[in-house]
């Protein structure tokens, strides 16, 4: 009895061994497959991660490649310092000076800041420190909604309300003007100014304010002389963010600014860097089109500069927070 069993066991044993070996082999194979899959997925994710870098490279490269020729052809000095922008000159003598647009963009942005920053900052103080919680929550919702409204809607309201208003108020033949654009921009940057400065004010340690109150300062003195200075880099970030928004906005101000390349004046019809591109891109050709890409390049450089400043403030903020 024993022998046959043993005999029977032995082949069985080898079969089991074989099976185990086979299993080991498939496990090995599976593991290899799994490793391969791991490597593959890692590569896929790496590629996804590099897409953003790729986009930035493509944007910079294409703007430089298509922006430089026109500057070269027109001449650096004339392009940047001539106040004549007349690419569609009838007598065949076009001129490409973008100084009016650079100045308009700077003035327009500065104007929007002068109006928007104080109001936005005071509103942030109101929401963060003074308003009761329910009122603040409701206003915050509405301000968020304000941020979500498309820019063309602001442009439309500006066209229908501000432009006629300015025309009547100042007795002008047309109300399309830098002033209208400045007001539209000021309204458009309010949400970001309010929310970023509010976050900064909220982050001020409660102890600072309590100490100030305990020393006999009034609430308002505390908010403006203790809380605001403590939150200053966050508020600065809000301002820079607003500058970025304002200088990059195109469609809303295209609808209210009048789009004539005058040197900037508050009640004059003006053309911004952005509105030059948005307004003329659809029909421009040849050197004119290339010049629009050069304007794009100038705008890009402005934005990169602003971003660098913004990052500086945000980094500083992080450090203070940590």
């Amino acid at each position: 009895m024993k022998l046959p069993v043993g005999k029977a066991e032995r082949p069985g044993g080898t079969a089991a061994e074989n099976k185990a070996a086979g299993q080991a082999r498939t496990i090995d194979g599976r593991r290899r497959l799994k490793d391969l899959m791991e490597q593959f997925m890692k590569a896929v994710f790496l590629v996804c991660g590099l897409v953003a870098v790729g986009f930035v490279l493509v944007i910079s490269l294409y703007l430089i490649i298509s922006g430089i020729p026109a500057i070269h052809q027109v001449g650096f000095f004339e392009f940047f310092f001539s106040s004549d922008w007349d690419p569609a000159n009838k007598s065949g003598n076009p001129s490409y000076g973008i100084l009016p647009m650079i100045l308009t963009s700077i003035y327009g942005t500065a104007g929007a800041m002068v109006i928007g920053v104080p109001i936005g900052f005071l509103m942030a103080v109101f929401l963060s420190k003074i308003a009761n919680r329910k009122v603040a929550a409701v206003i915050r919702e509405v301000v968020d909604l304000l941020a979500g409204i498309p820019s063309v809607v602001y442009g439309l309201v500006g066209m229908m309300v501000l432009v006629p208003g300015i025309r009547v108020l100042f007795g002008l033949p047309a109300g399309d003007s830098l002033l209208a654009a400045v007001i539209v921009l000021a309204v458009m940057i309010l949400p970001s100014i309010i929310s970023v400065s509010e976050t900064a004010l909220d982050a001020v340690p409660r102890e600072y304010e309590e100490a100030s109150l305990a020393l006999g300062a009034t609430e308002l003195e505390t908010y403006f002389r203790v809380s605001a200075p403590a939150a200053k880099s966050g508020i600065a970030a809000a301002v820079v963010l607003g500058v970025g928004r304002a200088i990059g906005e195109a469609m809303a101000i295209l609808m209210v600014a009048g789009n004539v390349a005058n040197m900037p004046g508050l009640l004059k019809s003006v053309k911004f860097l952005t509105t030059a591109i948005a307004g003329e891109m659809s029909y421009a050709g040849g050197l004119h089109r290339q010049a629009l890409f050069s304007i794009g390049l100038v705008l890009f450089l402005f934005i990169m500069l602003i971003n660098a400043v913004l990052n500086m403030f945000l980094k500083k903020n992080d450090k203070e927070g940590g």
Partner: peptide, 11 residues
């Protein structure tokens, strides 16, 4: 994130 939309339009 900080790029204005008109730049995306051009590119």
């Amino acid at each position: 994130a900080g790029m204005p939309s008109i730049i995306f339009a051009l590119v």
